[in-house]
């Protein structure tokens, strides 16, 4: 702002000094103010427009994503069934499915119904095989999800999101499968702990814990006749 403009503004602002401002100074100042306000509105308008465009794009994305999420959940469920997890679940009184490892272990051994035992055994073997080739597993999952979702070509961003989601779900199923196996193993550990002579004379507590874990997993493997997830 020029010195004259400052002065004019001061006049307006300070009242008694306003009498000394010239008309040109005032007009120049007003013009500048209007121009600044106009700029603000223009910028706001363009931001609004941009946001609106994004929202529309996101709405489109959300729809695809919803389809993909549903497809993912379905795939997760399929794999749970494939890995025999559902065979070990029971129906709760409120209709929910619950997994109670204690009901499947008695007297230091697995006690599964024949069908459940068969499903769990085959499922454990399948899980071990699937998870031994992570890349292949990921690809099969993506394929299955895409087929189930029936969406068209995905954008790069959507692809990236899908890969992350699939990886996350694969890991979740792995943890579920592993969790079930280990929950059963945990019940078998109790019998080992009670008769600890079978564990030898390991002095170190950590080593002892590891031995308990290994032995219980060995017992599971022996019981189901298949490898367990590492």
């Amino acid at each position: 702002m020029t010195q004259s403009g400052k002065k004019a503004l001061m006049k307006i602002a300070c009242g008694e000094k306003a009498a000394r401002a010239s008309v040109d100074d005032l007009q120049s100042l007003l013009l500048q103010i209007v121009f600044a306000l106009l700029m603000i509105f223009i910028i706001a308008y363009f931001i609004f427009v941009e946001e609106t465009k994004k929202e529309r794009a996101e709405q489109v994305l959300d729809l695809n994503r919803q389809k993909l999420v549903l497809a993912l959940e379905k795939t997760v469920e399929n794999h749970r069934i494939k890995y025999g997890l559902n065979a070990l679940m029971t129906q709760g009184t409120d209709g929910s499915r619950i997994f109670d490892a204690s009901s499947h272990v008695h007297g230091g051994a697995l006690s599964l119904a024949p069908a459940a035992a068969k499903a769990f055994s085959a499922g454990s073997a399948a899980a071990f095989q699937d998870y031994s080739d992570a890349e292949k597993l990921h690809e099969s999952w993506v394929k299955e999800v895409m087929e189930a979702a029936a969406v068209g070509e995905l954008g790069e961003e959507e692809k990236a999101w899908l890969n992350d989601a699939v990886a996350e779900r694969i890991e979740m199923v792995r943890l579920d499968t592993r969790g079930v196996q280990r929950a059963l193993a945990a019940r078998l550990q109790e019998s080992l702990i009670e008769s600890s002579s079978s564990l030898g004379t390991i002095e170190d507590a950590n080593a002892l814990a590891e031995a308990i874990k290994l032995k219980s997993l060995e017992m599971i493997k022996k019981e189901i006749g298949a490898e367990v997830l590492p």
Binding site: I98, G179, L184, A209, K213, S216
Partner: peptide
Amino acid sequence: MLSAGNAEFDRTAS
């Protein structure tokens, strides 16, 4: 619920 077995396995052994 299912994956809780992992922690339970470690905790029981420990």
